[in-house]
Amino acid sequence: MLAYIGRRIVIALATMWGISLIVFVIIELPPGDAITTAMSLQAGGESGTSFIMTDEEMNNLRRLYALDRPLLVRYVNWLQRLAVGRWGVSYTYGGYASPTPVWEVVSDKFAMTVAVTGAATVLTWLLFVPIGVYSAVRQYSLGDYAASFIGFMGMAVPDFLIALVMLFLVFRFAGVAVAGLFSPEYIDAAWSLGKLWDLLKHLIIPGIVLGTAGTAGGIRILRANLLDEIRKPYVLTARTRGLPEMRLLLKYPLRVALNPAVSSVGYVLPALIGGSVIVSVVLDLNTLGPVLLEALRGQDTQLAAFIMMLIGGLTVIGTLISDILLAWLDPRIRKGFTG
């Protein structure tokens, strides 16, 4: 088991290196750099300032920020800085005069992002496991058809549309606007039980919206896997052994059928950040998704790179956790059985 985990960690590190290459290439792809972006923003600015840099001034700035060095050098420099925790600064947050460290930009939103997606994930699991089991055990029953119908709807309807409809319904019937994560009076308040409760109330709708697709998919996958497992001879064997049906179901087929669900746990972590951009915009959630969108559009390279590295890192860590969980759950993976 230790050797298995060790192997996985080595692979994870190699993957991280690969991701860093791709991220670097992506942020270098668009023509121009942060200086030209800043220039064009200045030039097109509505403030009407006629502050236009000369080429020489721009080149000086490039030298100052080491943007004139060869690609490979810049890549290695960047990697070195990442490794020692100098993750860079964002120029869109704080401006050129006093750029904000990217970590501050991100950490500010990070807790909220985790709260929103965490709520959605918990809700997803609470819903799809019992519904999936019911659907499989009572295959072709009215309840199964209902679950399948809702499941397909949940998968087919885009999240942001569900978000809009929910917003409308809640506003129409409860008379409250539920966008955002806090009521106005709590936004700048210090943390208190009241603020936490307010946050939990505001998490319900994002939780439902973001959880719908996951729940729908989960129901379908669990139902299909469980139906496969229930027909396996070892289930029949356990039944002929005299095991009560419920204990039988929980101990044997469900355990095996949950494998794919467990392996999807890994995708939850990156989805914490990157998975809810549009919904976050629609529901006005103060999460990282919109920040990444802005950073990419504004060529705020260090911020964009940091967020992408974060998403990549979380994907790798999530997958690592999934792999370890799976190995712990399934001896065939742990012992490398391929039959």
């Binding site: 070892y234 005299g242 001896p331």
Partner: peptide, 22 residues
Amino acid sequence: RAIRGAEIGYIFQEPMTAFSPV
């Protein structure tokens, strides 16, 4: 269930698949 398994036992053809793999 007081009879199945307790008084009447059942042996399957394929012992490979008759045990849970996990």
